[in-house]
Design a binder for these strands. Structure first.
Length: 479
RNA sequence: GGCCACGUAGCCAAGUGGUAAGGCAGGGGUCUGCAAAACCCUUAUCGUCGGUUCGAUUCCGACCGUGGCCUCCA
């Protein structure tokens, strides 16, 4: 598989350090506030990457992937936010993590194998900081802070492709207290009153930003590992600093750096100041998880994804299209529909820098083949199975018919039954609907289309869509 | 101000030195009692202006526009 590597600026082959195995670390969220669709986009991108890499159908026959993604559960943002709302920082964080994990389930995301948190890896982080200091890449101040010595690392800036001089000019890096150089950044921050802190060789304090990711990723994946990912906004300084730290401590680090584009709302940056942030909770309220996923996968992961109501409506329709192609599996006769051309295109697309838009095009073409074959009375079962495999296993779509009964109003339905003079066999929604449909089928047989259409339209008002098929009426509940 | 992306049909979005995937929406048709779904047909010359080339949407330059990073951020 080929993937764009920010470090080299090229599309590089993904060559595992150990044959058949891959270690992937993705920067997770800092759970100081509600998660937004940007987090969801990143999560979906790396979810599909991991699903694809594990999939036996990929060009390498499937990798054994270890997927690690962290929670930075203590940092400046967390502390500031907790103070703002007058809550305990760790409690606030726990709540946001719980909510996000519930949403991850709703989004059908594969959980990382390890979800390390800063607060449970303080020892690891202190050890990494000590290694950096011992090797001369870090220094402690009298105040009990520890800084990374940027000038000790001549290749600092190699990820974001900038140099130290360029960074220093034209910016407002403030020479912090005790810093040797304006660009030096904190590995360890001495505690301030009211902040969570842990004992360390430099006194009580807490980890700086950046260090948790280099320490925890190496802890779980080894000093050198395959892939490190995150949003483009993390390239500098976060990932740049991670590289500096990890290489300072161990001489090696991640080989392949992946960065996803950011979500925009109606062509504008999503930001709290503009007030256009769409939270995951909002999004899940308005759109199906499958539609959100289809929306994200419809543009290349490195491009910005412009979230508009129209784009999501299109994605919703796209989901329905796939859903209807997966419905029913007539055996048919004659030449079976062969899914292999689309399957090959799908694999080729993903092999080439995770080309989900083209993979999706192959999927939609396969859906058309299924429908076409089915209309022609051919055996479309194999094609349908392939479609289900590609969409569900690899792209992580659920493509389940909506949970019918739960959302229906039983009382309204039984009123309908009496309106149409139908007695139902049971008191549940399902049997009421069946009874109404039976009455409609009778009406149609008697060519009483007025009555048949009235039943259909009343059911539609109650949220039940009715479609006539050669096998008889089929109903489904809308969302 | 510095660094870097992007600008493709009504909307979203791929892609290529030799006249442009897919989705949604629209138009026409088939099927249906009528619908729905499905199927078939149909809808672009690729921001502007120059340059290189036999030929550019694809390469180079300028300009305009949008976005990202340089400070917290997926």
């Amino acid at each position: 598989m080929r993937l764009t590597n920010t470090l080299t600026g090229a599309v590089d082959d993904l060559v595992p350090l150990e044959a058949g195995r891959l270690g992937i670390y993705v920067c997770g969220v800092t759970p100081y506030a509600e998660s937004h669709v940007g987090h969801a986009m990143a999560a979906i991108v790396y979810d599909v990457l991991v699903r694809y890499l594990r999939w036996p159908g990929n060009a390498a026959g499937g990798y054994d992937v270890t997927f690690v993604s962290n929670y930075t559960d203590v940092d400046d943002n967390v502390i500031a936010r907790a103070a703002e709302v007058g809550r305990d920082p760790l409690e606030l964080v726990a709540e946001n993590i719980d909510e996000w994990e519930e949403q991850q389930r709703a989004l059908n995301l594969v959980f990382p194998d390890v979800r390390p948190r800063v607060t449970t890896h303080i020892e690891t982080i202190i050890a990494a900081t000590e290694a950096i200091v011992e090797r001369g890449f870090g220094y402690a101040t009298e105040a009990g802070d520890v800084y990374f010595r940027v000038r000790a690392k001549p290749d600092y800036g190699k990820l974001s492709h900038r140099d130290i001089d360029q960074l220093r000019s034209g910016t407002r890096f403030e020479p912090g207290e005790g810093k040797e150089f304006p660009l030096d950044f904190a590995l360890w921050k001495a505690t301030k009153p009211g902040e969570p802190s842990w004992p360390s060789p430099w006194g009580p304090g807490r980890p700086g930003w950046h260090i948790e990711c280099s320490a925890m990723s190496q802890h779980y994946l080894g000093e050198a590992f395959d892939v490190h990912g995150g949003g483009v906004d993390l390239v500098f300084p976060h990932h740049e600093n991670e590289i500096a730290q990890a290489e300072a401590a161990t001489g090696t680090f991640a080989r392949h750096w992946l960065h996803n584009g950011l979500v925009q709302r109606d062509g504008e940056k999503m930001s709290k100041s503009i007030g256009n942030v769409v939270t995951v909770a909002d999004a899940l309220q308005r759109w199906r998880a499958d539609a959100l996923r289809l929306f994200v996968l419809g543009s290349h992961y490195r491009s910005p994804a412009n979230l508009t109501d129209e784009a999501l409506a299109a994605a919703e329709s796209g989901v329905d299209r796939l859903l209807s192609a997966l419905r029913g599996a007539p055996a048919g006769s004659g030449e079976p529909v062969d899914p292999s051309p689309e399957r090959a295109r799908f694999v080729d697309a993903l092999e080439d820098d995770l080309g989900t838009p083209q993979a999706l095009a192959a999927v939609f073409d396969l859906a058309r083949s299924v429908n076409r074959g089915r209309d022609a009375g051919r055996d479309a079962r194999a094609a349908q199975a392939a479609l289900a495999e590609l969409t569900r296993d690899v792209l992580g779509l659920r493509l389940e018919a909506p949970d019918a009964v739960g959302v229906l109003d039983v009382v309204a339905l039984s009123k309908l039954a009496s309106k149409h003079g139908v007695s139902c066999g049971g008191s549940d929604a399902e049997s009421t609907i069946e009874a109404l449909l039976a009455a409609r089928t009778d009406a149609r047989a008697e060519r009483d289309f007025a009555r048949a259409d009235a039943i259909r339209s009343d059911l539609a008002d109650a949220g039940v869509e009715v479609a006539d098929t050669p096998e008889g009426p089929r109903w489904s509940a809308g969302r």
